[in-house]
């Protein structure tokens, strides 16, 4: 059997809200090591990868590897029935065609149980090689979200240039052009307010703001976002999930014609 208990249903809610506009259906791959999920949007232009380590759960048991095919819109409907502080348990028997989702309020006075139908998905799984990226930035996720949202009003694409002093987001549109530069700041009192650049060489790539906006929906997952870039390969936009794992998004840079 498979059973995974999370102290806060809100974490699962945030994960599903972060990806459900991008991904319709996905397999949750469960093993002794934890839960992973890899899925592409319908046009296969972006990819998201979730990793939740088993030791990040309150309780975790997975007797044999399982792939649970889920419709994310339907999972979202069920998660809306959970209080943010509810304890959430996912459970399925071997060969079951449903996933049992349980919410327990902190004082145990309210217990909800749902059976979500599983779907058979013939999902393509891509091997993502370990890559030594030329430029990496860690910055506050709320700042990233705001920059992407603001630039989306001006244009369709955004250049991201990482240099030794920081990162510059540039945009061009019918009304003109603009840029927002965020300076490296490793001295900020709180770790989550720091902007840190690690680079071997400056990298500048251009991306579709439509997809970066989808990725920014993961902002509630944590205070930090990490961008990893190398020339001519997909950017990795990673939202670390404290003590549990991460949610990563991949998007290819725009190619100049």
């Amino acid at each position: 059997m498979f059973e995974a208990k999370l102290n806060e249903a809100s974490l699962l809610k945030k994960i599903v809200e972060a990806i459900r506009e991008l991904v319709t259906d996905a397999n949750l791959d469960c093993s002794e090591a934890g839960i992973t999920m890899q899925a592409m949007d319908s046009s296969h232009v972006s990819l998201c990868a979730l990793n939740l380590r088993s030791d990040g759960f309150d309780h975790y048991r997975c007797d044999r590897n399982l792939s649970l095919g889920l419709n994310l819109a339907n999972l979202s409907k069920i998660l809306k029935c959970a209080g943010n502080n509810d304890v959430c348990t996912l459970r399925t028997e071997d060969d079951a065609d449903t996933l049992t989702v349980t919410f327990e309020s902190p004082k145990q006075e309210r217990i909800s149980e749902f059976e979500l139908k599983l779907i058979a998905l013939d999902a393509e799984h891509l091997g993502i090689p370990d890559t030594n990226y030329k430029a990496q930035v860690r910055m506050p996720s709320a700042e990233f979200q705001r920059i992407i949202r603001d630039l989306s009003v001006i244009g369709d694409t955004c250049s991201i240039a990482v240099g030794k002093d920081g990162v510059r987001f540039g945009v061009e549109g019918d009304l003109g052009s603009g840029s927002i530069s965020v300076k490296q700041n490793t001295a900020a009192e709180k770790e989550e307010e720091r902007v840190e650049v690690h680079m071997e060489e400056p990298v500048e790539l251009t991306f579709a703001l439509r997809y970066l906006n989808f990725f920014a929906k993961a902002t509630p997952l944590g205070p930090i976002v990490a961008l990893s870039m190398s020339p001519d390969v997909p950017v990795v936009v990673e939202f670390p999930i404290e003590t549990v794992g991460y949610l990563r998004f991949y998007l290819a840079p725009k190619i100049d014609e």
Binding site: S43, H44, V45, L126, A252, K254, I255, E257
Partner: peptide
């Protein structure tokens, strides 16, 4: 503006 490359161009199916 350029085109958008699919992910399976970069990462191979396993």
């Amino acid at each position: 503006k350029g085109g958008q490359t699919r992910m399976d161009t970069f990462f191979k199916s396993t």
